[in-house]
């Protein structure tokens, strides 16, 4: 790359970018958030690795295995609640396209309600198990089971808070650059929870039920 041979015309060369408008704030932000989402995915990957190691028969010690307590169709309802919440959030984003404020707010509200439904179903399920004496303290296997499912639930909880915050910000501030950027980030966060749920549902609940 030595450029000493090439003759450079000092009148033509551009040393300063006259027309540089600065970076694209929204995509920088969403890209940064996508980085976070991927590192969160790594967190789940690690939990899955741990779950894999702790889901042998001996991992459940003398306690019950998921085959004995998972109710597939119940959890399927949970799945639908989450998927619908994500869908409705998507509608909010579609309304954002034409700057439709009430559309965005309604979409966020719908996503919020369905998200709460998901969480309520999850809590109900946990209470059912705990009442039956199936708790994380029983065995390493159950610890891993609870960990994976409840870490996901914690993400949902955080997402719900975030949705509430965004409802407020949309209502108060309208579609500023900040708000729009956050809405896109939240969309990725929320959809990502649905993606992780597919793995959890299939590999923890269904597979656990099978084996």
């Amino acid at each position: 790359m030595s450029s000493s041979e090439t003759v450079v015309d000092p009148d033509k060369v551009r040393l300063w970018s006259e027309d540089y408008e600065g970076h694209d704030v929204i995509s920088t932000r969403t890209f940064g958030f996508w980085m976070y989402v991927l590192s969160d995915a790594m967190l789940f990957a690690t939990l899955f690795a741990a779950y894999g190691v702790l889901s042998y028969p001996h991992s459940y010690y003398t306690g019950p295995t998921p085959a004995q307590f998972v109710a597939p169709w119940y959890t399927f309802v949970q799945t639908m609640a989450l998927f619908l919440s994500v869908l409705v959030y998507g509608w909010a984003m579609a309304s954002l396209k034409d700057g439709n404020k009430s559309g965005v707010i309604n979409g966020l509200l719908g996503a919020l309600v369905l998200g709460i439904l998901f969480l309520a179903l999850d809590i109900h399920d946990v209470m059912r198990l705990v009442a039956a004496g199936i708790t994380p303290e029983v065995s390493g296997g159950l610890s891993a089971f609870y960990c994976l499912t409840q870490v996901h639930a914690a993400h949902i909880f955080a997402g719900l808070i975030w949705i509430i915050v965004m409802l407020w910000q949309v209502a108060r501030k309208g579609f500023t650059e900040d708000v729009v950027g956050r809405l896109i980030s939240l969309r990725m966060f929320w959809q990502f929870q649905a993606v992780m749920w597919v793995f959890i549902y299939v590999f923890v609940y269904l597979w656990g039920y099978m084996s």
């Binding site: 690690t46 690795a49 741990a50 190691v53 702790l54 001996h58 991992s59 459940y60 010690y61 306690g63 994380p136 303290e137 029983v138 065995s139 390493g140 296997g141 610890s143 891993a144 609870y146 960990c147």
Partner: peptide
């Protein structure tokens, strides 16, 4: 804090899992 058994010696925990992670 919560009394789980990820890395305990017994109760189905696995100590080497910690080292691995």
């Amino acid at each position: 804090y919560l009394g789980t058994h990820f890395f305990t010696a017994g109760f189905g925990g696995n100590l080497m899992l910690y080292t691995n992670l």
